[in-house]
Design a protein around this nucleic acid. Structure first.
Lengths: 206, 206
DNA sequence: TAGATTGTTAATCGATTAACAATC
DNA sequence: TAGATTGTTAATCGATTAACAATC
């Protein structure tokens, strides 16, 4: 086992491994191998073994990995063996879709509160949530010690809201606004921008 | 200028450069430098210069890059100097949000058709689109020579629909279903799964 | 001109792959 | 046991950074 600092690129693959393992588990499969996992995910078996071995010896020669055990280990490593409260800021179509999305269950997250600054929307119900005023964002985030936010506001206000979130103690932002955010080094950001993702593929088309 | 095969990791950064440049352009800024761009995006100036120089000498010593010119070059390189027709398969909340999203305009994409297999939804209007029957998916995609699809169906049916799309000639899939897809080597896939993106950040939280 | 910034080289750093002994 | 598959090493491959001559 290697106990050094783990490269972020490896951390980035672990959730994909976990997702594949949970799908195997749902099918009742109890054992898998780096080769099988690699075929499902589309990466090499050697890489999977190398990645996993950064954290311990979780497999058995000859038989491979126990699916439930490896799930347990990955959930622990990724700290999703608990439930993180998440806020959504921006109740447009995307925020709306996220608030009603049931894909967070069993993956370590729960939507805690949702915000918008549109007086028309404040007080309305979206899924099981009442839309709160963005003016109360910082207060509520601090009060509830929330660490994770999904940002679904227009690009023009994304940085300003991000600043507020950071000041309120948020440490991880999933940014759906099509703009880069400037945050301190101890805050993580992940970007989801469909147009950017699509533009990454058109290069390869004729 | 280097005319060798360009690494995918560089291609992946170009849309981010393009987005930042377009934001500068909207502010009326006509010139920028690798340093300024790097500060906006959060990567090193050296990397930006190196990436851009793969495609030609687009800057000027002493003054930097012309914003409109670099935008033009990147749009050309990424093949988003045209408009790609895109289909959406799956008219749940996410498909719905994408169908009404106006962020594709000026970025090289236009939603062409939207599909669902739910008889309740077929024929309904979502934004400006009438929901078509997924049974007609292959036919319509072939007929219109569409190359790009956004997949917003449940994980359980994603692979099956992806197979249909590939057989119908789709070459790029933006997959919102929380599952890995198996596609031939000449088909590109990008993954958007909020839970996976969030799990990539929790590792770093306390 | 003087200052600024590119494009590029070489050095460094990091990631992936292939191979195989260990062992279940 | 024989077959399968891990964990790990060493080699290869690729990406990033630092530095600077060229030049606008």
């Amino acid at each position: 086992m290697n106990t050094n600092r783990i490269p972020d690129i490896i951390i980035g693959r672990l959730p994909v491994y976990l997702r594949a393992l949970q799908q195997l588990s749902e099918k009742g499969i109890l054992t898998t191998s780096s080769q099988e996992l690699g075929e499902i995910i589309g990466i090499s078996a050697a890489q999977i073994r190398k990645d996993i071995s950064q954290f311990g010896e979780f497999g058995k020669q000859g038989t491979g990995y126990s699916v439930p055990f490896l799930i347990e280990r990955l959930r622990d490593i990724l700290k999703v063996d608990r439930v993180w409260e998440v806020v959504i800021v921006g109740m447009g179509d995307i925020g709306h879709a996220l608030a009603r999305y049931n894909g967070f269950t069993n993956r370590g997250f729960r939507i805690s509160m949702v915000f918008d600054n549109d007086p028309q929307k404040i007080g309305e119900k979206v899924g099981e949530y009442e839309v709160l005023d963005t003016a109360k964002l910082a207060e509520k985030v601090k009060q509830n010690r929330i660490k994770i936010a999904m940002l679904t506001v227009p690009a023009a206000s994304a940085q300003e809201i991000a600043d507020q979130l950071v000041r309120a103690g948020i440490k991880a932002i999933l940014n759906y606004a099509p703009t880069s955010l400037n945050v301190p080094g101890n805050v993580r950001v992940q970007y989801i921008d469909p147009a950017t993702h699509l533009q990454r593929m058109t290069y390869y088309l004729d």
